[in-house]
Design a protein around this nucleic acid. Structure first.
Length: 911
RNA sequence: GCCCGGAUGGUGGAAUGGUAGACACGCAGGACUUAAAAUCCUGUGACCUCACGGUUGUGCGGGUUCAAGUCCCGCUCCGGGUACCA
């Protein structure tokens, strides 16, 4: 055997030492992670503090998952790791932290599985939750598991039902812009005179929860109601391919529209991404305008339209009503009856997508009837067209084809008159002529023309837009044929589903037509056990199959039937953040003092797909609860952040065919088809079963450990951008963790005494950087800073124990298992979860000198190091005397010399 | 169509208007090993050059500035949202 020279120099006892070091050096993440997860669980390390006197509190929330049968995918841990780092950091900063997790477990998949197999959804749900919980625990996330909640737990949905009762018993006082109990609603005298039935009707018309007919898509084949997205463009059901039809069903609705203004104004005060705020604003869609009445020629009826541009009334040359408009058949003349009826019927078969597709030609039919334009007395034709929707405005519009592209297209197609009433501000005289003649649409502003009428006395010619709107609105109001109005795009919320696996409504429909709610004391109203989960014949929920549960009799022998609809999945997720505050309370929804302490949620992280609906619905409920004095804040989520989607590489052939990951092999950085040998293009796509590019976190943790998975997900890039998963990237952070462990776990590397100045500077820079990066959720650069520090420390070969302890604390929020292990090895017996976060000392970061880049006309040429205290004049003198300056000036004289202290020197030379 | 983002090496990305490419992956070379893996070291935007060094470079075209990846104007492409909103 030949030994290398150096080896011979080692005394025998040192070789033994190497062995012991070697065993220490192994980064055995399996053992470490299991050990600390067990420790945290046994010691309830992350139990939420009960003490509510600490003024520093932080409520950190994840959007809780729907526990699907497929288990976790790598997208879940992204947001969870981010909130975990934030939570661990805040604990070290001395905050009381509330960081809970639960399950949004009502939902369709479990119900469909029940239909197929007869397995009760609660069993499927429990199994799925168990899988999710196991997987999440294996990531070492610091949740307080004593607060775990599940929306399908009767102890939880009891309170969801309780909130529904509150909504039902609340009305919105538009004067105060506030929800109030119906007991405080005063019924007008004229209604009181009409008797009890009318009084009840009046009150019902004010309740935030109301019962109404609503049109839904119905698949006769599957016997279920479908959502818009389940209906394909050709009007068939996505799942079975059969044709769907529209069906009117009695549904529960919530009057979110009344809260539109409050929901809109509330957005301003929130620390949310601007993009999400804009999306919510657009969804609410507030627009101001006016309602205008048009008298129908030859009938004692009027047609009311909503318009944002009442000032363009002189240009209104026809009207359009939606096919569902209530006056549609009354308006239609006998001659046009057949064509209108056919058109209405054809529309009802169209899916919403089909109907609203911009690329499709506009369709419509004439009703045979005219309306009178109030500003000039001209009769204008009334048409029916499906581009006008019933749900928005009044379901009728006045068309101004000269200045609205949609109206223009329609007018051109059906040869309707086009009257230009705004002077186009264009220099091109040909174009100007075309616009004035009604051969081109002008949608920008311009001074009014042709906008006066001696009979009505209006004249807005020459005025600008704002003044025109004001004058016409004033005129309409004075004549009693119109008024200023605010309109919202936001529609009331359809709040019932014809499903089994959801919260039952605590509602009884009595045989005499009365509707009553179940007494609060009787909650929760449980779901009945069923033999089969198929929907009822007529579109009713599966609950209608249950006989005992369904019927009730009151003390007077009156028979009643329970509501068979259930609540949508949104219901449970609308308020879960409140239950986390006091999840085990059986006496009330939550303790008021605890709510006051913990609310609002300080940081809420989840996917952008919930940017509108979940967040808007949740804010709506919260505002109602606020108005009723149940919660103490007006908004639930103070700071929101959306993580980006994690995509994965996929492969396609030159022809664009997708190739499953199984058939791809990599050679020299290129990708080839294993069978055909064809070179493939690497693309980035959503993870999907068909592309076989789904990454399972279990595979990653078993190979590299949870700390590596966490670190990689955070190191991939900024939290909010979509980014592709790359297995190779995990190796990078795994390598870093291994190097860190191997360095800090060897006692020879840890010394006592004074720290090296460079290491000290690096360490304090790291503390500062990590702290601000965590606060700003910029974890990728914080991790990079840790790598830089470890690279420096390993180069130096040793650090002081003080430095080691400090570094481990910085590492702790990111890779807590390894940090705990190292903390323990450094001689500590307690968990470091509550160790104070290290303070950085600005003194160590101070530099004596700065390496100035010297540039000529902005191009960097060379560097010179100067003391940081050196003045501009001294710097200029030395730089100008430098040989390299002479070289770059090449005989020219500088016209200007810019010195920005401790930043740059720029010498300007004019050519 | 409209709204909101984005475009930086082979890849993910970094960069208060002030040295573009930190950190990492990949790749290349080397060390260790019988060998491989693991680990460690070195190099690595492109182009010219033995080298010193130079030229060029942040999607495209203009502009502001002593100085632009960053600010402004006009485009192109990509991603997300939305669907005729009167």
């Amino acid at each position: 055997m030949i030994f290398p020279k150096d080896c011979l120099l080692l005394p025998p006892y040192n070789q033994a030492n190497i062995l012991s070091i070697k065993s220490k050096m192994d980064y055995n993440f399996h053992e470490i992670e299991k050990k600390w997860q067990q420790y945290w669980e046994d010691n309830k390390t992350f139990k939420t503090p009960e003490d509510l006197t600490n003024p520093k509190k932080c409520y950190i929330l994840d959007m809780f998952p729907y526990p699907s049968g497929a288990g976790l995918h790598v997208g879940h841990p992204e947001g969870y790791t981010a909130t975990d780092i934030f939570s661990r950091f805040k604990r070290m900063k001395g905050f009381n932290v509330l960081h809970p997790m639960g399950w949004d477990a009502f939902g369709l998949p479990a119900e469909q599985y029940a239909i197929q197999t007869g397995t009760h959804p609660s069993i499927t749900t429990r199994n799925n939750c168990d899988t999710f919980r196991r997987q999440i625990k294996e990531l070492g996330l610091s949740y307080d598991w004593d607060r775990e909640i599940n929306t399908t737990d009767p102890k939880y949905f009891r309170w969801t039902q309780w909130i529904f009762i509150r909504l039902y018993n609340t009305w919105f006082d538009e004067t105060l812009q506030k929800g109030r109990p119906v007991s405080e609603l005063s019924v007008p005298e004229e209604i009181k005179e009409l008797g009890q039935a009318k009084i009840v009707k009046y009150i019902d018309s004010k309740r935030l929860a109301y019962y109404a007919n609503a049109q839904v898509w119905w698949c006769p084949h599957c016997r279920i109601v479908c959502s818009n997205e389940e209906v394909l463009t050709d009007g068939s059901h996505e799942k079975c391919g059969n044709r769907v039809e529209k069906k009117n069903l009695k549904q529960w609705m919530l009057r979110i529209q009344l809260y539109a203004d409050r929901l809109l104004k509330g957005i301003d005060s929130l620390d949310w991404p601007e993009g999400i705020k804009d999306m919510q604003r657009n969804w609410i869609g507030r627009s101001t305008g006016a309602e205008v009445d048009f008298q129908i020629d030859g009938m004692n009826e009027k047609l009311t339209v909503f318009t944002t541009r009442p000032d363009t009334l002189f240009g209104a040359t026809y009207m359009v009503i939606a096919p569902e408009h209530q006056l549609c058949s009354a308006i239609t003349t006998p001659e046009e009856k057949e064509s209108v009826e056919n058109y209405v019927k054809a529309t009802s078969l169209k899916s919403d997508l089909d109907r609203t597709d911009l690329s499709k030609d506009k369709t419509g039919v004439f009703t045979g009837r005219f309306a009178i334009n109030p500003v000039n007395g001209k009769p204008i034709p009334i048409w029916v067209a499906d581009y006008v929707l019933t749900g928005y405005g009044t379901g009728a519009i006045m068309a101004v084809p000269a200045h609205d592209t949609r109206d223009f297209e329609f007018a051109k197609k059906f040869s309707l008159p086009i009257d230009c009433i705004q002077d186009p501000d264009v220099t091109d005289t040909d174009r100007k002529q075309r616009i004035l003649e009604g051969n081109e649409c002008w949608t920008e502003d311009g001074k009014y023309i042709n906008s006066s009428n001696p009979e009505t006395g209006i004249d807005i010619n020459g005025l600008a837009k704002e003044e025109g709107i004001a004058q016409i609105t004033k005129w309409l109001e004075s004549k009693g044929i119109g008024k200023a109005r605010v309109n919202f795009k936001l529609r009331d919320w359809l709040f019932s589903r014809q499903r089994y696996w959801g919260e039952p409504f605590p509602v009884i429909h009595w045989e005499d037509g009365e509707i009553t709610l179940v007494d609060e004391k009787e909650l929760p109203l449980m779901l009945p056990e069923l033999e089969k989960y198929l929907p009822g014949e007529s579109g009713e929920s599966p609950l209608s199959n249950s006989s005992e549960w369904l019927t009730v009799t009151d003390s007077n022998g009156r028979k009643g039937r329970r509501e068979t609809n259930t609540m949508p999945q949104w219901a449970g997720s609308c308020w879960y953040y409140l239950r986390f505050i006091d999840p085990l309370n059986d006496d009330m929804i939550f303790d008021a003092a605890k709510e006051k302490y913990w609310m609002p949620v300080d940081l809420y992280i989840g996917g952008a797909e919930h940017a509108v609906l979940h967040l808007l619905y949740s804010r709506f409920w919260h505002k109602v609860l606020f108005d009723l004095g149940i919660v103490s804040t007006d908004e639930p989520y103070q700071r929101l952040f959306n993580q980006g989607m994690i995509l994965a590489f996929a492969y396609e052939t030159g022809a664009g065919a997708k190739v499953s990951g199984d058939f791809v092999e990599e050679r020299e950085g290129k990708h080839f088809h294993k069978e055909t040998g064809e070179q493939l293009r690497q693309i980035v796509a959503k993870m999907s079963k068909s592309l076989k590019n789904v990454v399972n976190p279990d595979d990653v943790t078993s190979k590299y450990g949870a700390d590596s998975l966490r670190l990689y997900e955070m190191f991939m890039g900024p939290l909010d951008v979509t980014k592709p998963w790359d297995d190779k990237g995990v190796k990078g952070v795994f390598g870093f963790l291994g190097r860190t462990f191997r360095f800090l776990s060897v006692s020879e590397n840890i010394v006592e005494g004074d720290e090296d100045a460079e290491v000290l500077k690096g360490l304090h820079y790291l503390i500062k950087k990590a702290e601000s990066d965590i606060e700003n959720l910029r974890f990728n650069t914080a991790i990079s800073a840790m790598m830089i520090f470890i690279n420096l420390a390993t180069k130096k070969g040793r650090v002081t124990s003080e430095t080691a302890r400090t570094f481990v604390k910085v590492l702790a929020p990111f890779s807590p298992h390894m940090a705990e292990e190292l903390w323990n090895m450094l001689g500590n017996t307690q968990s470091l979860a509550y160790e104070p976060w290290p303070l950085f000392n600005e003194e160590y970061l101070k530099e004596d000198s700065f390496d100035y880049p010297v540039s000529f006309n902005g191009k960097m040429r060379f560097n010179i190091t100067f003391p940081v205290t050196m003045t501009k004049e001294e710097i200029i003198n030395i730089v100008m005397a430098d040989d390299r300056t002479t070289k770059w000036l090449a005989g020219s004289k500088p016209s200007n010399i810019i010195v920005v202290l401790n930043r740059i020197v720029n010498i300007v030379v004019k050519n």
